[in-house]
Amino acid sequence: MGAPPPPKHRRLDYGKSLLKILILVALASLSLSAVTVLFQWTDVEQLPQFLRPYSTFLLFASPYLRYFNAAIILVLGYLIVGEVGRIVYAYMRGFADHSSAATVQNVARIVGYGVLLAILASVFSVDPAAALTIGSFGGLVVGFATQTFMANALAGIFVLITRPFTFGDVVTISGNTGHVKEIRVMHLLIESEDGSKDILIPNSLVLSTIIMKKRPGVRMGPTLTTITIEQPASKAKIGDKLTFKGKLTETMSGKPLPSSPVNLYERDIGRDDLLVEGLTDAEGNYAIEWTAKKVDFFDDTAELYLRFIGDEEHRACNSKQFIIEVK
């Protein structure tokens, strides 16, 4: 039996998740205040009149006030960190695969648990010098144990956000040349030029070495060409299959261009990203299928166009640009 498929991504309602976090924070504040009011007393004379009937229990539990506070912080803090992790995962799944999004989610949770432990240390009034010593030693041990993992994970997050290359690009990294197949959090997956093997390159190496990116050849022939395209849908959900149809012809004669490369690109600042490669049929028609995904880190729109790169007899051309909202 093969490995189980990754869980199906379900769209998260960010508004409800943020509301849940605010409710948990408010509940934690109210619970801590209530526990402090009930168990802060050390003498019967200090108790308000409405609490004196319960003086025996309240005074018995008073020395354990910090433990009650710690339990509230631990339980509600755990829930808050978990909800933040779910938001991070859902956001990353907009433009990354399951394994990459899950890794970023784990990093966010580790940071959250570290903050939670620091708050718990303050509840128990740990001596600052002792806390610093323990924290420094613990950080040193954890740092040595996880330095490779953290270096690759952080580099992968940076690569996912900045996107110095994209799917289909031909890159050379540390002497390895191939087509970019997948950008993961820990590794970059490229396929060798002859298609015989996959190459995994650690992201820390990707970030620290020189990258040679092959620019698609553009040959200017004498004959003008035109790409027509049927108007696509203006909105799509992440994961939807969209098919772009149209025709590639010579501009003046209308003669179709068979077996010619027509590729789908996403327009971006400073560079255009290749999304899907296609080919025209014998009548010059093409049908390119694209799985909708988030292609821009800052918004939910994809500015797309089709491009014929040209050949020795025909000039390169672009289709009109169209915008699709992907959510």
Score class of each variant (00 low, 15 high):
residue 259 S to Y: 12
residue 222 P to F: 11
residue 247 K to E: 07
residue 292 A to S: 07
residue 66 R to A: 13
residue 262 V to C: 06
residue 13 D to N: 15
residue 313 E to F: 13
residue 78 Y to S: 15
residue 31 S to G: 13
residue 201 I to F: 06
residue 144 F to S: 05
residue 5 P to R: 09
residue 17 S to F: 04
residue 3 A to H: 13
residue 101 A to F: 05
residue 195 G to F: 09
residue 318 N to F: 01
residue 226 T to P: 02
residue 251 T to Q: 11
residue 128 P to W: 12
residue 251 T to H: 10
residue 275 L to A: 04
residue 25 V to S: 10
residue 264 L to P: 00
residue 209 T to H: 13
residue 184 R to D: 15
residue 44 V to C: 06
residue 280 T to N: 03
residue 9 H to T: 06
residue 81 V to T: 11
residue 76 L to N: 04
residue 325 E to F: 00
residue 232 P to N: 04
residue 294 K to Y: 00
residue 246 G to L: 01
residue 138 G to M: 13
residue 45 E to C: 04
residue 58 L to C: 08
residue 107 V to I: 15
residue 47 L to P: 00
residue 256 P to T: 05
residue 194 D to T: 09
residue 247 K to T: 11
residue 228 T to Y: 01
residue 304 L to D: 00
residue 156 G to A: 08
residue 148 T to W: 13
residue 151 A to Y: 05
residue 284 G to E: 06
residue 326 V to K: 00
residue 265 Y to W: 14
residue 108 A to P: 07
residue 63 P to W: 02
residue 160 L to K: 04
residue 29 S to E: 11
residue 214 K to T: 12
residue 17 S to A: 15
residue 160 L to I: 11
residue 180 V to F: 07
residue 86 R to F: 09
residue 246 G to E: 01
residue 104 V to T: 12
residue 142 V to S: 15
residue 99 S to K: 12
residue 121 A to V: 04
residue 182 E to P: 01
residue 139 G to Y: 06
residue 93 R to Y: 02
residue 146 T to D: 05
residue 48 P to L: 09
residue 51 L to T: 08
residue 10 R to H: 15
residue 37 V to G: 06
residue 317 C to G: 05
residue 107 V to Q: 02
residue 263 N to L: 04
residue 4 P to V: 08
residue 160 L to Q: 11
residue 93 R to C: 02
residue 280 T to E: 00
residue 261 P to T: 04
residue 137 F to Y: 11
residue 16 K to G: 02
residue 218 V to D: 05
residue 316 A to E: 10
residue 51 L to P: 03
residue 148 T to V: 14
residue 108 A to V: 03
residue 168 G to P: 02
residue 247 K to I: 05
residue 188 L to Q: 03
residue 53 P to I: 08
residue 184 R to H: 11
residue 136 S to D: 05
residue 234 S to D: 06
residue 294 K to S: 09
residue 149 F to M: 14
residue 233 A to S: 08
residue 313 E to V: 10
residue 106 N to C: 07
residue 302 A to C: 05
residue 159 V to Q: 10
residue 4 P to K: 06
residue 302 A to R: 01
residue 312 E to C: 06
residue 5 P to M: 09
residue 302 A to G: 10
residue 81 V to F: 06
residue 191 E to F: 06
residue 145 A to V: 13
residue 260 S to G: 04
residue 161 I to A: 13
residue 115 V to A: 14
residue 12 L to P: 03
residue 232 P to T: 00
residue 325 E to K: 00
residue 91 Y to N: 12
residue 261 P to S: 11
residue 56 T to W: 11
